[in-house]
Simulated scan of single mutants.
Amino acid sequence: MKTVNKGILSSIDIVNYKPKYQIHFQKLNEQWINHYFKLEDNDVEVLMNPEKHIINQGGYILFAKKANHILGCIAMNYEGYGIFELNKMAVKTNYRNNGIGKMLIEACLEKARDKKAIKIILSTQKGLRNAIHIYESYGFRQMSYVNLKHSRSDVYMELSLK
């Protein structure tokens, strides 16, 4: 899909989901979620069955890959009516803070625009200030919303693509 050159992280490819990557999607997200929060039943179901819950519903899962190593992942659920939800972003611990998360977000934005999406939404947690700052740098804005999917979420954000 896209190759980015960044110093020690040169030649990182952003690639689409393949069934053989499911275990990476699961492990990266379990590690990240359990570090900051608690894995919820919905997380387990989605992580174990991403094709059923994301891919087959019109969504996407992208991976940051260097050589044969998966370094990070991100998902976009299709919510209908031209709306995608950004979620399940995780980067291997020793590769964080090197721009991989930004590369994954940019690839999702590109994919959403290619699909003529009108809006991207996400939910996060106010304690994740760096994540919120990154999302805001891409134009996401905090909005009021009452029905967040996870008990750990307390911030809802939207990005209009119109």
Rank of each mutant, 00 (worst) to 15 (best):
I100Q: 04
V46G: 06
V146A: 10
M48C: 09
G99E: 07
I70L: 10
Y60A: 05
L109K: 00
M103I: 10
V146S: 13
N87L: 09
I55A: 09
L62N: 00
E85H: 11
G72S: 07
K119L: 10
S153R: 01
I100A: 03
I134H: 01
S137M: 09
D154G: 07
I83T: 10
L71P: 01
K119M: 12
Q57C: 10
G82P: 05
F84N: 03
N94G: 01
R141L: 12
L128S: 06
K88A: 05
K102M: 06
E106V: 00
K116D: 10
V146K: 14
R129G: 09
A117K: 01
K116S: 11
K116F: 10
I134N: 03
I100H: 04
G58C: 07
S151K: 14
M76C: 13
K102N: 11
H69L: 13
S123V: 06
I105P: 00
A75C: 06
L122M: 09
E45V: 11
T93D: 12
S137P: 07
I70N: 03
Y156S: 12
M143I: 15
F84Q: 05
A131E: 14
K65E: 09
Q142V: 11
E136C: 02
L86C: 00
I54H: 03
F63K: 01
Y78F: 13
Q57I: 05
Y135C: 08
N87K: 13
Y78P: 00
G82W: 04
I74K: 02
I55N: 08
F140V: 04
L109D: 05
N97M: 11
E51V: 06
Q125Y: 12
Y95C: 14
L148C: 08
G127I: 10
S144R: 11
D154R: 05
M89I: 15
V146Y: 12
G99Y: 06
Y135Q: 07
R129Q: 15
I83K: 07
L148H: 06
L109M: 07
A117P: 02
A75G: 06
V155M: 10
T124P: 06
N87E: 13
E79L: 15
K115P: 00
N130D: 15
G58K: 06
K111T: 04
L71S: 05
K52N: 11
V91H: 02
E110G: 01
I54K: 04
G127R: 08
G72A: 10
I61M: 01
R152W: 15
R96H: 01
N77V: 03
I61Q: 00
